[in-house]
Design a protein around this nucleic acid. Sequence first.
DNA 1: CAGCGACGTTAGCGCTCGTTAACCTGAGGG
DNA 2: CCCTCAGGTTAACGAGCGCTAACGTCGCTG
Lengths: 202, 202
Amino acid sequence: MAMRTDALTRREQILKEAARLFAERGFHGVGVDEIGAAVGISGPGLYRHFPGKDAMLAELLVGISGRLLTGAKRRLAEADAGAGPGAVLDSFIEGHIDFALDDRPLITLHDRELDRLRDSDRKLVRQLQRQYVELWVEVVREVHPGLSEPAARSAVHSVFGLLNSTPHLGRRGVLPGRGATAELLHRMARGAFASAESPAAG
Amino acid sequence: MAMRTDALTRREQILKEAARLFAERGFHGVGVDEIGAAVGISGPGLYRHFPGKDAMLAELLVGISGRLLTGAKRRLAEADAGAGPGAVLDSFIEGHIDFALDDRPLITLHDRELDRLRDSDRKLVRQLQRQYVELWVEVVREVHPGLSEPAARSAVHSVFGLLNSTPHLGRRGVLPGRGATAELLHRMARGAFASAESPAAG
DNA sequence: CAGCGACGTTAGCGCTCGTTAACCTGAGGG
DNA sequence: CCCTCAGGTTAACGAGCGCTAACGTCGCTG
């Protein structure tokens, strides 16, 4: 029960490395021996911490979806008092960008390996994702009342695609600094929503 | 050498089904027996048409990248005569959307299974992709001179993420018709580029 | 110090997978 | 009429996989 804040537990180490490896080579492309080697133990030692390889992926994906949803709920509650819907949307975008930039492997897994889960886990993840999307759709429609509900939903998914594109950027450190990238993505997301509403602008 | 235009050759059947299966369950998640079953033959019969499972993926990915690049070159040449850069960019966007909407499995594979290729094939695909991106970057910078070269490159990748989000939309036929979806995506892409250039607008 | 539980290890099982080998069949051509 | 060859078939092999079994080794605690 002591010591935290500096070192990761074994479980956390394993999850982190598993996320990286799954993102790099796909769930089926990584063996348990590799995951073990990545944390300094070898192979079956993982089974002291997880009931199986599937469980690692499940915990990762549920954790991702949960954190996204929880963060959005918090941001909504925080800004609900005084700020307008535009500020809430900005906060949502900022949170999603932070996640995409700081946890690239997880973002990659998020929409790539969902189908490898057991039915129950997959349903849970889908449900969390749906709630997350729903929060976005509501806020987007407040900011852009001209958008129909299906159009807003499509727009939200598309903006997720835009924001989640960060893994494709930094093969080598080509991107011009984290802050600038975040700002660029934020502007593009707002512009995409605005142009979704009306064919005008330019 | 006779009959075409109505039926696909065996090879084409195999590639089509393999693309679908790879997109659904990942390269490592699909067995050769399944691919064979999908075209009515079983398992090792595939080896009369391809030297191995890897070769199918390679041909798919090289084909995708090549078609995207060829299409962009053609559109650039066609519009080069009279039209301005804005029209070329619209043409690029339209072509990419057509591809994303009509060949969803291929778009999914395009940025998901690249790492499963042999080094030589992967280099070829990367080279084709790079040329495609380069065409976009040039045109985008003509339309939006305020964008630096790295910013334009990031913006292009992000817009690809936006346009390639279509596989996430139509789990069930939720999207409101192909034409409307294409228009929505087109507007959002243009708006994203515009907002990438300047923090203004709204 | 005995006992125990947390956390590793190695050996190996059973299964799946990609691939090869050997064989079969039907259509086309000299 | 036979030969060839494209395009299949089934059987089987070898490798790699996830996972289990059996065992070892610490550090803590009564």
